[in-house]
Write a protein that binds this DNA or RNA. Structure first.
Lengths: 156, 156
DNA sequence: CCAGTGAGTAGGTTTTCTGGACCCACCATA
DNA sequence: TATGGTGGGTCCAGAAAACCTACTCACTGG
């Protein structure tokens, strides 16, 4: 947790500080798939019960999940994604797309997500302003704080 | 690293097994920004030097970075993203977008990325087939292996 | 000769993960 | 009433990873 003295200020780092611990994004995956209960999460995520409990607390604290009772007597809770949690789905989609492309010979994808346009989802990141797919060469980074330079492609 | 017995098979998990360790994606961020040298990475990423060395080895082994000499005598290396590394940029973009939206009051973004269409990049994940932005409600998951069910929204 | 830089490696301490056992409340059934 | 099963956790000791400091090596510049 302790950041070494002044690394580059960056929303990527800040986001990873919240959801970058092991299992956090897998918990979110399951919750987004509709698996909301502790024991289900233990099985599907593969995390020790201990760690899962800690991750759930953290995700709830961060406003990514909400904890809701689905039974009094005995008290039982389920976890649901908030809007902030659903807003992380693009991260899950892009991670999955990369794994499907680079970690497998195509054809044995363990999970396919269907888009309601009728096709299998192939997520693509586009620029909201112009609508075209984003390519590395088209980007120019502008660090806001002083002293943080970039060089080469994607440079400022 | 040791997976508990049979968690859900999933490309998200497999991708995170490669780039999910602390600092890995920040290293990739820096390399994509054009900062290629060890000491620069130490400063900008904020990782301890030995951890950084381990991450670089791992990313090179995974085919995400390549190590290239830029000076013999003394031997000095720099790290460049491969195509597989560049293909991870969408993950970085979506992480940054989430942090900008949810972790800050808009206006103090620490880094802005400009798209060469002339606007600030606001990344948006779309379905490559139909071109529309992806919303949670439009997705249906189909686990391939048996026994892995999903429930509720995004269910199969 | 001395200081400084770039790219690491080495060692010892602290933190985190891990696997397993354990706990409590409840339900089913016999 | 005992007996077992489930859901949702907590606790603990050992293993692994991260952290920090220091050190090395090969130069370069003055």
């Amino acid at each position: 947790m302790a950041a070494r003295k002044d690394p580059r200020p960056c929303s990527i780092a800040d986001t990873l500080a919240v959801v970058g611990e092991k299992y956090s994004l897998l918990v979110l995956r399951e919750v987004c798939l509709g698996n909301r209960r502790f024991d289900q999460l233990v099985r599907n995520v593969g995390a020790p019960r201990d760690i899962l409990a800690a991750r759930l607390r953290r995700l709830v604290d961060a406003g990514i999940l909400t904890k809701r009772p689905y039974s009094e007597r005995p008290q039982r809770f389920e976890y649901l994604p908030t809007q902030a949690g659903l807003d992380l789905e693009p991260v899950l989609m892009t991670l999955m797309a990369w794994g499907d492309r680079h970690l497998r010979d195509s054809g044995d994808r363990p999970m396919v997500i269907e888009h309601n346009c009728g096709h299998d989802l192939l997520p693509q990141v586009t620029c909201a302003a112009c609508g075209t797919p984003v390519r590395h060469e088209d980007l120019t980074a502008h660090p806001h704080a002083e002293g943080w330079t970039v060089a080469g492609p994607t440079a400022a």
